[in-house]
Amino acid sequence: MAVKKKKPVSGKSAKSKPKSSFFQSGIFYGIVFIFLFSVVLYSQKNALAYYLGFKTDKIVYAETRLVPLEKVLDTHIEKSFGIDISEYQDKIDWSKVKELEGGYPIEFVFIRATVGNDRADFKFKKYWKKAKEKKFICGAYHYYRPNENSVQQANNFIKNVTLVEGDFPPVLDIEKLPKEQSIERLKIGLKRWLTIVEKHYGVKPIIYSSESYYTDFLRDDFEEYPFWIASYTSFYKDIDDEWSIWQISENAKADGIKGRVDANIYNGTSVSLKEILIK
């Protein structure tokens, strides 16, 4: 028997699905996701740059502390205040360097001495001499590069820095994460630097880093060392007992120094400050 063929149905089928609108499509949700992800990345750009190593010398934070610098200093007015400097301070009139803005006396000065395994700070010798002439308590620090040889870095510091009684112990400044080694290998390198430098100067070095770096990578493995911690976003009425020095700002002002300068609080009085100095 012959079968009668069905004619094709013209127009839209009753069972065909309606086309999705743009707002229901995967493209829309993809764009939303990319936008939100970009916002998060941008808001944390400084922190990411710090951890990935794109910041070369200064620790930068994504937020700003709401408490004015003056209130932080007033809260710790019984403690000892100081600054730290490097070749990045363009011009210094040492005859005027006496106080942080607001009348807070400067008692100590840390100066960057060396960088990595082969370079001295271009202004270290000049600044060291001037700070000594002004009778500031002086300290020298080494900017550690995680991907360079730790022994060579220790020798670079020793070659350029002479410390005497009344100076701060040597300082190891570690801010960046390594690109070519694990965290465990980094810690081995840091301990090697600390051991060599301690043996040479006869005193345990101070470790400088940010609060987050200290918490995440250093606190548990270097607890026998004094710490100098940078924390610009927090306001502490009581400084952690494990912190010998708190770097409270990179945006302080001081007479005689062009531009901004780092401000620090020693976690003790002018009298107790002598306890940490080289004997």
Rank of each mutant, 00 (worst) to 15 (best):
D121H: 01
K125H: 06
W128L: 02
K129V: 03
K130D: 13
K135W: 06
I137V: 11
I137W: 07
C138A: 09
A140N: 00
Y143W: 14
P146K: 11
N147P: 06
Q152M: 12
Q152S: 12
N155I: 06
F157T: 08
K159W: 12
E165I: 04
F168H: 07
L172T: 06
I174A: 01
L177G: 05
I183V: 00
R185E: 15
L186G: 01
K187L: 05
K187M: 04
G189C: 05
L190I: 11
L190F: 10
K191H: 07
I196Q: 01
V203S: 08
I206E: 08
I206H: 05
I207F: 00
S209P: 06
S210T: 13
S212L: 14
Y213D: 14
Y214P: 02
F217A: 03
R219N: 10
E224H: 00
P226Y: 14
F227A: 14
F227W: 07
W228V: 05
K237T: 14
D238R: 15
D238M: 12
D240R: 13
E242F: 10
W243H: 06
Q247S: 06
I248W: 03
S249H: 02
E250S: 12
N251P: 00
D255T: 03
G256E: 14
G256H: 08
I257M: 05
G259S: 09
R260N: 15
V261G: 01
D262H: 11
D262R: 13
